Amino acid sequence: MPSPAAYVKRLARAYCLGLVCCAGLTHAAPPATCPPTAQMPSQEQMMAGLRDTQDRGVLWRIAKDGRNSYLYGTLHVGRQDWIYPGPALQRALQQTAVLALELDVTDPAVQAVMTEPTPAAQLPVIGPALQRRLDGQAALACLPPGALASMHPVLQVMTYALLAGRWDGLDPSYGQEFVLAGYAKAGQRPLISLETAEGQRDALIPKTPAEALEATEQALELLEGQRVRPQLKRLAEAWARGDLAELAAYEDWCDCIKNEADRRAMRRLNDERNPAMAERIAALHAQGEPLLAAVGALHMTGPQALPRLLAERGFTVERVEPHK
């Protein structure tokens, strides 16, 4: 472990590098009408954060062929004091040489794929009324009109849902993926994507324009009904305390699963992506370098949970309890 001063310098560099993906999302506006935006911590705040850091999220040690790697469940939003790795995660970083994320969120090529225009034939018809509702969410997020227009409507509302958390101090810029990606880049550590940007985009976007339209309207109803922020806050609190049972019960309390179509969408977003990620993690581990694989925490739950799939592939999987 580097000295505290050296670690602060690395963390500062990591945070700057990790934030590159969110550059341009904030929009200058009167503080009274806009949610707080992510801020670079001062050196004093970093020293205090490192001194007081604690374990958050869910972490497993996965072992096979005499080597240990780690599997970490992340959250796509966070608070400023969550950017400091807890003792258990610090040890996992020290004992591994490679970082594997769902996607390298700092890669411009990945960002380009996720924001590239969708062919018109695959887009739902967005009439004037629905466009006004999307524009209303942009205004609430303090984004200029059309800031996300190049994105598929489903990806737009997903982004607005994450940005809504800023009113409660939960900002995508503080998400674990950005911090870990920046840490890897600051330490010149290999950073590998477990999925392709195209594959993840296709999983996030419904297959037909009709399904995409329905998903967009449902997400807007949740946003307009002020139901997204309580869900996101509950999810974040469960993640922060490492409450795997609460995370596993997400579909029971999220108010987002109303019918079989919703269940199919959830399986597409979560369960159906897990086997390929498990295979990729197993293949990377087999190459000999110990790795830390960091994937959204909900991928650690359900019948296709990543810890279960890795155990089926011959790994010894052991939950790492938070440091006391």
Score class of each variant (00 low, 15 high):
residue 80 Q to V: 14
residue 165 G to P: 06
residue 203 A to Q: 03
residue 38 A to L: 09
residue 157 V to R: 09
residue 252 D to T: 09
residue 22 C to G: 06
residue 45 Q to A: 14
residue 297 A to P: 01
residue 281 I to M: 07
residue 53 T to H: 13
residue 318 E to F: 07
residue 297 A to H: 02
residue 235 L to Q: 07
residue 200 Q to W: 10
residue 154 V to M: 07
residue 293 A to M: 01
residue 150 S to E: 12
residue 296 G to T: 04
residue 308 R to Y: 00
residue 76 H to D: 10
residue 78 G to W: 00
residue 147 A to Y: 13
residue 279 E to F: 02
residue 63 A to Y: 05
residue 276 A to S: 11
residue 102 E to K: 02
residue 139 A to S: 12
residue 70 Y to L: 05
residue 155 L to C: 09
residue 57 G to E: 04
residue 50 L to W: 10
residue 262 D to V: 07
residue 110 V to A: 08
residue 23 A to I: 04
residue 159 T to L: 12
residue 63 A to N: 08
residue 40 M to Q: 14
residue 122 Q to Y: 08
residue 163 L to G: 01
residue 263 R to V: 05
residue 148 L to V: 11
residue 26 T to P: 05
residue 267 R to A: 11
residue 307 P to S: 03
residue 259 N to D: 15
residue 157 V to C: 10
residue 210 A to N: 02
residue 70 Y to K: 09
residue 120 A to H: 07
residue 321 E to H: 10
residue 100 A to L: 11
residue 217 E to C: 10
residue 153 P to Y: 11
residue 257 I to L: 14
residue 96 T to W: 14
residue 82 W to S: 13
residue 271 D to V: 05
residue 133 R to S: 06
residue 18 G to F: 02
residue 213 L to K: 14
residue 65 D to L: 13
residue 39 Q to L: 15
residue 186 A to I: 09
residue 303 P to A: 10
residue 319 R to Y: 05
residue 127 G to P: 05
residue 120 A to R: 09
residue 244 L to A: 13
residue 205 I to T: 13
residue 135 D to P: 01
residue 106 T to E: 00
residue 301 T to K: 03
residue 224 E to T: 06
residue 176 Q to H: 15
residue 275 P to F: 04
residue 176 Q to C: 11
residue 131 Q to H: 11
residue 297 A to Q: 02
residue 22 C to I: 09
residue 37 T to P: 00
residue 126 I to H: 08
residue 245 A to S: 07
residue 140 L to H: 14
residue 238 A to H: 13
residue 212 A to I: 03
residue 311 A to T: 01
residue 136 G to R: 12
